[in-house]
Nucleic acid binder design. Structure first.
Lengths: 337, 337
DNA sequence: CTCCTGGACTTAAAGGTTTTCGGAAACGTA
DNA sequence: TACGTTTCCGAAAACCTTTAAGTCCAGGAG
């Protein structure tokens, strides 16, 4: 806690010039003599002057601030997106106003109003799942970009991970290893993520002219379900040589149960997970090959496109961002593991 | 994207009153007739008027905004604190400006300036570990509260988890179960958290008049280290009947390795973890008894004290917040598991 | 000498809101 | 009628900065 804040008026007085001249000197504009500029800069430093962003924003109509509205920031998915966005902004001079609506539509509305009254230049909406969510952009005076969870309105700008493509990539990886009896265990089908990943797996198998080993098994996203699914699958389809799991949790449970049943991973069964949730994917034995959705990069991209939208040129539509397969021991070719 | 924003001037014109009257009506002040107030409110609704927080803040000097400066928001510890703070603020009408300095002092200084120029009413600094960090509060025109990682300056306001007390609580729990040969495995000793937890364990054992089983084993916070420590410990101190681990990751590794060596948990060895990181603590078998640092509550408390400090009355010093022991199967009394 | 040019600086307005103070109208009382 | 009181409303200042427009002066061209 210290003294009162200095205004440009104080700086001008101390330097013996008018506030207009002080302003010009501080902002590096032309028509001010070098000696005068020196005096002003010295005065500003001495008073540790900080221009008042409120006054500046009031005048220019730009606050260099964006709102980040999340439905569930506690989620593992929101955080990396948030960080990516924050980093993209931080690079420049933007600041991020964070609001967590906790899945409550009316709280969201409330936060929306608060953000608008603070005159944010734009808005990023982070979904809690990849399921489309109601648009918030109608009649808003600022541009909006959706990240992770797309808007229902195709006119909005949305960035989502390419779950279908990533699942196909995962299955193709298994196929390239020579596996031919590939099963799929995933999360609840009311998640678009689960449906998309199944779809991707199906497409890859079809392209290879192979049937899927058994039906897709759908359950909670949990490790427990992974174990349970493994037990069922090893019973009904004892000859599988690979499994693609819809999450790292499921994969970790699967690996554990498979090992307990005497199946070696990856020698007997290769396993691919999803999410690259490091605490699981790198600590299980063997470490998991898994899909990384590059969420931080997705968040960064969303932020950059928000800049573009603020500057006038938006690119409407749902943009699918590529994912990445992180290859670890759970799919090492036999003999190398 | 829609029409231009309405100002109070537009509202006043539409209602046929002066802006002064409009302001009074909108802010629920006294000297305005009921009928007039109605007209103004109707006009404001029709124009969907939002008062410009910049102008208001410029005048009042209060922005109803706080800055949240984190050193490492990707960390598991920063996030819950952040959420707790955000929730405490969100309850009122406060907004949170989020900045991530990523452990870089000069970036931190940069963000600090940006926050001050935006005229935040206060600041929360979230540490990445419980080690004291340099104070940022000298000569700042706004109050600052430190959460998780305390300030080095005892005049500042800091909130930290009571690691010593929690560790003692964990060991006392083991003692109450009748365990007498208790070992301790924890993280790197250059972390204050590791030293505090060891200290708490030592105090509890001393109070019970018991020696610790073996030396404290110190290594990385990882699951791998937990496994390794278990192997060493079961070799050198084969008769231990309990272990207190400095993190859930270590505990998970310990449980795994112990089971592989034929020790039953909790029957032969009871295990207590730390952090209550749910993906580990509830999914290991058996589920882990562990210390929950109540970080979200800590963040909320920090935010509430920041309010107090803004309103004038700060409470300097390092405040130790109580933790909580979450009891699960890894310490169930034999026979119940 | 006048006029013009351009540099260096100042004045004043603008941006949206709150608040203080004063004014006007209506009404009651002497 | 004169005067005081109450109730409602408006004018204007203040918050801080940026910028367009204006002033002043020296010096060069005609």
């Amino acid at each position: 806690m210290a003294t009162k804040r200095a205004t440009i008026n104080d700086v001008a007085s101390l330097a013996g010039v008018s506030i207009a001249t002080a302003s010009k000197a501080l902002n590096g504009r032309q028509d001010v003599r070098a000696a005068t500029r020196e005096r002003v800069l010295a005065a500003a430093a001495q008073l540790s002057f900080q221009p008042n962003a409120l006054a500046r924003g009031l005048l220019s109509g730009q606050t260099r601030t964006v709102g980040l509205l999340t439905s569930d920031s506690v989620g593992r998915f929101g955080i990396p997106v948030l960080l990516g966005a924050e980093n993209a902004f931080g690079a420049g001079e933007m600041a991020v106003l964070l609001c967590d609506a906790r899945g409550d539509a009316i709280r969201e509305q409330h936060h929306l109003r608060a953000l608008l009254s603070r005159r944010v230049d734009g808005l990023i909406v982070v979904g809690e799942s990849t399921d489309p969510r109601p648009s918030v952009s109608k009649d808003l005076p600022v541009p909006v970009v959706y990240a992770y969870g797309p808007s229902e309105d195709p006119e909005d700008v949305s960035f989502v991970p390419d779950d279908v493509g990533a699942a196909a990539m995962a299955v193709n990886h298994l196929l390239a290893l020579g596996r031919r009896r590939i099963a799929h265990v995933t999360g609840p089908t009311h998640y678009k993520a689960a449906r998309d990943r199944e779809e991707g797996a199906r497409l890859a198998l079809e392209a290879a002219g192979l049937p899927q080993a058994g039906q897709t098994l759908s359950g909670p996203w949990s490790q427990r379900w992974g174990r349970h699914a493994a037990e069922m699958l090893l019973m009904s389809e004892p000859e599988i040589d690979a499994v693609f799991c819809g999450s790292d949790q499921i994969a970790a449970g699967f690996v554990e149960a498979a090992r307990e049943r005497g199946r070696r991973v990856p020698d007997d069964i290769a396993v691919v997970g999803y999410d690259n949730w490091e605490v699981l994917s790198t600590e299980t034995r063997p470490a998991l090959t898994t899909v990384d959705m590059n969420l931080e990069s997705l968040g960064r991209t969303a932020a950059q496109h928000l800049f573009a939208a603020i500057d006038g040129k938006a690119t409407p539509g749902v943009h699918k961002m590529p994912c990445q397969l992180v290859i670890r021991d759970s799919t090492s070719p036999p003999g190398i593991s």
